[in-house]
Design a protein around this nucleic acid. Structure first.
Lengths: 333, 333
DNA sequence: TGATTGCCTGCGATCGTATGCAGTGATTGT
DNA sequence: ACAATCACTGCATACGATCGCAGGCAATCA
């Protein structure tokens, strides 16, 4: 920048003003502007965001901390975030909360990179207390997504898990299912809410879930396979299984096939999230569509436009919708 | 930092030295060090990476530009990159090359964020000439992954697509398949190499692929479904289909199921990449395992440790391995 | 013609950190 | 006892940009 100032025989303050097109506040001669612009182009000038940020200006960076980018659902969410951010001219810094050992490092890293204008939390981080603690003391707005509706001190955008599970159970009930099992991951945040709603729904109907009909593990197909095997080993196996997550549902479909259970003729399976792949499983998965784009949009807006720090603690809760595909059917017999 | 200097009645320079444990160059009194460290802790001091970077020090940031994070394969790759980077104390900045309109903005953004110490390119970007152009003029090392082996001016780490496709075709041939089709995405980089190898293999065997046996589209399941439908409509449909990608293979599995073609009894299907989900499809997918971690490790090392700018143009090419699962079988007699 | 106004531009301070060089006091050597 | 050495710390400046404020110059007005 100094080079271009020297080349144009101007001071770098003027150059700075031109390059940031300071609007109406300070007038600039048209030919000067052109001269600067031309030289800047010729010299291949790129602004140094570090110096910019140092002076307090916004860095146009949006920090995102995600548990597991490998999870297709979160991958989709990250995609949506980058899109929403790009719409506002922002870029995305991705932090990976990953395993437990790296937790401290990564969170620290991303926080250390607090030179971003806001931070988004994707997924439930309540098992990483240090992260939340540090984040609470952060100087930037923090918005959490899919953290479960109960607030943890940070602004958040959530999905109505209860409504989602209810539509699924309504659907299955209409198809005549009575023996319905639930397979979840770690009992945290959204997963926990979904399971609680599941139980409550059945209790309200006058039929508590049977022994062994509630299965947990981690949120991966392998875990779901183990769960289904145990369910099938019961004296009265379920006719339908509600998975807390599409990823789990995919594991269930695989396990069912491996044990020669035809879906949906012998066993109905439902998911939750409607990840892109859900439409292409064998058979196509009946699931609950998560309004990812809408949620992300709200979160980004909350984080960037409004002050999400503490004032607007209005937690928007969006409703998911049922997507009935081919993995559910009338109960056999 | 000035606060802590004031609190300890020391100069800010001393504080800086303590906090960076300048080794042996400048000695520091032990009690001073302790005093500083204590106050720093008490005041919850966090170094500002911006100011650090401004002084020319490394920012410990690794830029990653990826086409489509939604693609499970690249999601896994990003995962591997963050892991490899974390091992070196680096953080990851994710840039999304996304659709075409945003291309310019995003690339520019990430480049503008050239305050990272190196940049990794994930996937083939050759249709985004401006990106490559800008990158070539960058001041930081750039390493490309899965860009196809033919160099484009940037250092790269590639996979031996030819070996991969050959093992697949060997496998299918052993199972007795004669009528083998290929389904690919856009004919770029790796995909192109795989298709070319496919054709060459068959030609070498004395049997060029039949009319209509080569299908292209985009790299998503929908595209694969369309492809399979056209293949099935042929007078002599194939007994096996080689997909250029696991994502395509998943689409093929789905389409096969939808058209009541049993896999592998009536139709064998293979993928490429061995994404995590490949083990959990219905049926489990026979595919080629991409050495993602190894490749990423090499790339990160190239980008960070060595000077990847132009000198070490040694393009490491790693070999993939066949993973035979349940989606391939003897040709129907 | 002198004064007031307005348009444009330059000076200099600033952000938070790193670092060369100078300075201070104490210890040691002769 | 004086000088030289050493251990430690402070001063000042640089990094690259932003921005408040002051100042130069021309045009318009009295």
């Amino acid at each position: 920048m100094r080079d271009i100032a020297r080349a144009t025989n101007l001071s770098q303050s003027t150059v700075s003003r031109v390059l940031n097109r300071t609007p109406t506040i300070v007038p600039i001669a048209e030919d000067t502007r052109e001269r600067v612009l031309a030289t800047a182009m010729a010299l291949g000038y790129r602004p140094n965001p570090l110096a910019r940020g140092l002076r307090g200006a916004s860095t146009m960076l949006l920090g995102v901390i995600v548990r597991d980018i490998t999870d297709p659902f979160f991958a989709g969410a990250v995609d949506a975030v980058t899109a929403a951010a790009a719409g506002r001219g922002y870029n995305v810094v991705l932090g990976h909360a990953h395993a437990r050992a790296e937790e401290a490092i990564t969170l620290w890293g991303v926080l250390e990179a607090r030179h971003c204008d806001a931070i988004l939390l994707l997924g439930d981080m309540r098992d990483q207390p240090r992260l939340l603690e540090d984040l609470a003391g952060a100087h930037v707005p923090v918005v959490a997504l899919w953290q479960g509706t109960q607030a943890t001190g940070v602004a958040s955008v959530a999905v109505d898990n209860e409504a989602g599970i209810r539509t699924v159970l309504d659907h299955l009930t209409e198809l005549g299912h009575q023996r319905i099992a639930f397979v979840g991951g770690r009992r945290l945040g959204d997963i926990k809410e979904r399971e609680e709603t599941f139980v409550r729904y059945l209790v309200d109907k006058g039929s508590a879930p049977r022994d062994g009909y509630l299965r947990h593990g981690s949120n991966d197909p392998e875990s779901a396979i183990a769960a289904l095997e145990q369910l099938l080993a019961l004296s009265e196996p379920p006719t339908a299984v509600v998975a807390a997550t599409d990823v789990l549902a995919i594991g269930l479909l695989h396990a069912a096939h491996r044990h020669d259970k035809r879906v949906p003729e012998q066993l109905s399976i439902t998911g939750f999230d409607d990840i892109p792949m859900a439409a292409y499983t064998v058979p196509a998965l009946t699931t609950v569509r998560m309004p990812v784009r809408e949620m992300v949009e709200q979160a980004v807006q909350l984080a960037l436009d409004g002050r999400a720090t503490s004032a607007a603690r209005s937690v928007p809760v969006l409703r998911p919708t049922l997507v009935a595909r081919a993995s559910t059917g009338r109960v056999a017999g």
